[in-house]
Structures are given as structure tokens and as C-alpha cells.
Design a protein around this nucleic acid. Structure first.
Length: 424
RNA sequence: GUGAGUGUAGCUCAGCUGGCCAGAGCACCAGGUUGUGGCCCUGGGGGUCGAGGGUUCGAGUCCCUUCACUCACCCCA
């Protein structure tokens, strides 16, 4: 019985890696342009960090975490998201002493034990950004602006930016009790899922797709009508700043995030070609979280981009980078092969992407290989060349070939490298 | 966790109501020039028909179990 990968855990094969690297390279470039610096944090954290931040009664903590007891008896969890760990590190190393506002990003795998489906895996990757120490609405707008730039540079223009405010501890409880009261009167007309949600997370009812539930919600209270003055001012300012920057968005009062720590601004970026798991990015403000984790009471806001989902959207499109070769060396005969092996390494040390096939074979076979690898040039070393102290160099694109004395080969290769760099 | 669908070569798939050695295209390798690629031609390697059990004279084809994948619910990135 052969061993297969664990369910929901996937290999990214060499053919797909180029796209991942492109996504990450563009992400890093944009993030750093907007002032973010990378932080790398552990995959394992104490379980308590997540139950305290994400929320004891959330789905993530209740039934999706990879939690186990290690050999010294403490409960550890493979991170299901990045914010908690970043805050932990930020507090632990007193990074708030270094600067008033920190902008941090982190790219890496997250783990949640869910039923796998398109765009949802048990190990998945997020590009995560957090701004700590700023409660200015411009910070919220700046994050969305960053996302716009990032998606633009990835060639994604058809994305839907949706925005909401979840209020704060001074206005949300009032809203929640209004919701509970309202839904209580409609209880009988709600589906069984929603009747359960009434107890666990009433706001989720707003998301339900069942027809009768949607009807029951017709006159339900809306969070945006219940915001306190400060929250409303903040939300309006975020919108004003988004308009100033010309970022299109829509307000969706039914965005309910699955993590308890969100306050005020929350947002999602949706793609229409992702199927059911259509959120490419989600995030929001979490003022108050840092204090709850034992740090200073500093505000924060962040987002997470689902890398698999991004890659999945990009996959169907043209323009995937293909790797190619600068030089392929074909050798005929033992002596020539030894010489070629030497020049192969010299070429690489000069910065050329060079390859040869140690299996040898006919010149034809080696040329086929060179062609398959997309090599720009072919260097032929055979007995004929060796006896003359020459090498044949063929341009694979136009088929022309010239002979170069072996003692000039290195400088010739250096010249090709120059041409490559200028071209690139 | 719930429901539905699918599982035949590396990839995309064919294989009708169970019956002759399990096929095609692409990919891979080789030959078609005594040392010259891409196209074309010829040939070749490669499959425990997801796995396990059952029905049958006989199963890729029917039944059961299991695993995986896909889609949806749920949830979210």
C-alpha cells in the first residue's frame, strides 16, 4: 500500500511553483512599498493563544484546530491564522517600544481541519499584513489601497471589495440584543441551522441562503444603523478616504467574520471565479485584542489573503512564466564529455543557466533535449571540435552556428551573460 | 461534520446491456543522416482498471466496505 499525502495537504509541483513565486514576489514588492516589513513566526503556538484571541466558541477553535499535547504535556496548536502569533511576537519582543506604528507582514502555511474542497485545504497559505498602533481611518483605507495595488499588479481587476463595520464594545452589545429580540419573534420561521445560530452566533443568520430565513430578515435591525457615534464617524471616514483614492467598494452590512476579535471595519475581497470559497482576502480591525493578550492597549488592523485561491484564479490565465535555459552543452565521446562537464560548471559560475545530459546519446537526442529545455544556445563538443581546439555554438532560434576557439570560450560565455542581463 | 457525484497509463479520456491479450491522444524514449533540434513518419517503455471483500463459469463493467478527489452545505483565506 503506497503512502499518500495527508488529506487536505497538497504538494505544489515544480510546474506550478513559478506562479506561486510570482504571486509572492509581487506581494512582497507591494507590501514593502507600503511600508511593511516581514516577520517570521512559528507554526506552533500554545493553544491558549488562539482560544483567547480567535474566540472560545468560534468554529475555528471549537472544531478545526490541529491541537495536540507534546511530550512535555503542554497543549500546542498548529496556527489556524497568523494575527494571534504576530501579536504575541510583537508583545513578547516589545516592538511597540521601537516605533509608534508597526507594519508587519508574514507569508506561510496555516492549518484548519475542515472538509477539503476547491479553495479550501487543511494546510493553506496566507499572505498576512497587520498595522499595529494606528486607529486612524486612513490606516484602514491604506490597507485597502495596498490590496488594490497588489491585485492590479497581479492582473486581477474584476474583484469585489466589500466593506462593513461591526461596531465596538459600546455599540455592538446593543445591536446583538436587538437582533436576538427580533429573531426571537421569527424563530419558528427560521431553518434549523439558524435556530442553532440564534444561540451561538446570531449575526450568522444574516448570511443564511434559505429563502424563509431571508424573508424573516426583511425588517431586521442592521448593524450600520446601530453604530455609536465614534464607530459611525470612523466608518464614514474610511469610506471618504477610499473615495478619495478612487477605490471602488460596496458596503455590505452582512459581512460577519468568523473570528471574535474583529471590531469596526471589516472587509472581504470576493472573486466570481472561485466557486463557493469566493473570498480571496478577508480582514478587519481588532482594537482591543492586544490588550486582551496581555500587551499594551494598542489598536490593530490586518488582512489575510488566501494564496491558493489567488493562484487558482491566476492559473487559468496566460502569461505564466516559463523557465528557459541560456546554454545546453552537447558532448560526443568520453574526452569531449569531460571537457563539456568542465565548461558546464564554468558557464554556471559565470551566471548562465546551463545544462547538459550526462546520459549522452546521439547528437540528435541531445539537441532534442536542448530544444525541450528551451535553450537559447547549444554548444557542441565532439571529436571534430576537440581535434581543432574549437567548439561549435549554435543559436537555437535561427539555426546559425559558428566555431569558437576553446581558449576564447569563457570570454564568449561571459559576453552571453551580459546580453542575458541586459535583456532581462 | 452532512449530502451528491467521480475514481481505467505521467496527463485528458474511450471501453455499449459482465465474455477474446485493456485502448486512444498528449507526454516520455528510440529510429527515420556516418555528428544537427522544433514538423512529420515508424517503433517502444509504462496500467495490481483507487484499495479490500463478495456475486458469477467469467467483472474495468454488478453488490458491499473503505480511501481519495470534485461539488454543494457548513465555515472561511
Amino acid at each position: 500500500m503506497q503512502i499518500q499525502a495527508v488529506r487536505g495537504f497538497r504538494d505544489v509541483l515544480p510546474g506550478e511553483v513559478a506562479l506561486w513565486q510570482k504571486v509572492e514576489a509581487i506581494a512582497r514588492s507591494v507590501l514593502e512599498r507600503y511600508g511593511f516589513r516581514e516577520i517570521r513566526i512559528p507554526i506552533l503556538e500554545k493553544t491558549e493563544l488562539f482560544s483567547r484571541s480567535i474566540g472560545e466558541s468560534t468554529d475555528i477553535v471549537e472544531k478545526e484546530m490541529y491541537t495536540f499535547t507534546d511530550r512535555s504535556g503542554i497543549s500546542l496548536t498548529m496556527r489556524p491564522e497568523a494575527t494571534a502569533g504576530i501579536l504575541r511576537a510583537y508583545i513578547e519582543h516589545s516592538l511597540y517600544q521601537l516605533e509608534p506604528v508597526s507594519k508587519l507582514y508574514c507569508i506561510g502555511p496555516m492549518f484548519r481541519h475542515e472538509r477539503p474542497q476547491r479553495g479550501r485545504y487543511r494546510q493553506f497559505h496566507q499572505i498576512n499584513a497587520e498595522v499595529l498602533g494606528s486607529s486612524d481611518p486612513r490606516t484602514d483605507a491604506e490597507l485597502l489601497a495596498l490590496l488594490r495595488t497588489l491585485f492590479e499588479e497581479l492582473g486581477l481587476r474584476e474583484l469585489d471589495f466589500q466593506l462593513n463595520s461591526l461596531g465596538c464594545p459600546s455599540c455592538r452589545p446593543g445591536f446583538r440584543s436587538k437582533v436576538a429580540e427580533y429573531l426571537g419573534t421569527k424563530r419558528a420561521r427560521l431553518c434549523s441551522d439558524c435556530q442553532r445560530r440564534l444561540m451561538t452566533n446570531p449575526l450568522r443568520v444574516y448570511d443564511c441562503k434559505v429563502e424563509t430565513c431571508r424573508e424573516a430578515l426583511a425588517g431586521a435591525p442592521v448593524i450600520l444603523d446601530e453604530l455609536c457615534q465614534e464607530c459611525e464617524a470612523h466608518f464614514l471616514s474610511v469610506q471618504k478616504n477610499l473615495s478619495l483614492l478612487g477605490i471602488p467598494f460596496s458596503v455590505n452590512p452582512f459581512i460577519v467574520r468568523g473570528l471574535d476579535y474583529y471590531r469596526r471595519t471589516t472587509f472581504e475581497v470576493l472573486s466570481s471565479d472561485l466557486g463557493a470559497q469566493n473570498a480571496v482576502c478577508g480582514g478587519g480591525r481588532y482594537d482591543g485584542l492586544m490588550g486582551e493578550l496581555g500587551g499594551p492597549d494598542l489598536p490593530g488592523i490586518g488582512f489575510a489573503i488566501g494564496e491558493e485561491r489567488l493562484v487558482s484564479i491566476l492559473e487559468g490565465r496566460a502569461g505564466a512564466p516559463t523557465s528557459s535555459l541560456d546554454l545546453f552543452l552537447a558532448a560526443l565521446g568520453e574526452e569531449a564529455t569531460e571537457k563539456a562537464f568542465l565548461y558546464l560548471d564554468k558557464a554556471r559560475r559565470l551566471g548562465l543557466r546551463a545544462e547538459m545530459d550526462f546520459r549522452g546519446g546521439s547528437l540528435k537526442a541531445q539537441m532534442r533535449r536542448a530544444n525541450k529545455l528551451g535553450s537559447r544556445r547549444l554548444l557542441i563538443l565532439g571529436e571534430a571540435e576537440l581535434s581543432k581546439g574549437m567548439a561549435t555554438v549554435k543559436d537555437m532560434a535561427d539555426g546559425t552556428q559558428v566555431e569558437i576557439p576553446l581558449d576564447e570560450l569563457e570570454s564568449a560565455m561571459a559576453g552571453w551573460k551580459e546580453a542575458c542581463s541586459q535583456r532581462g
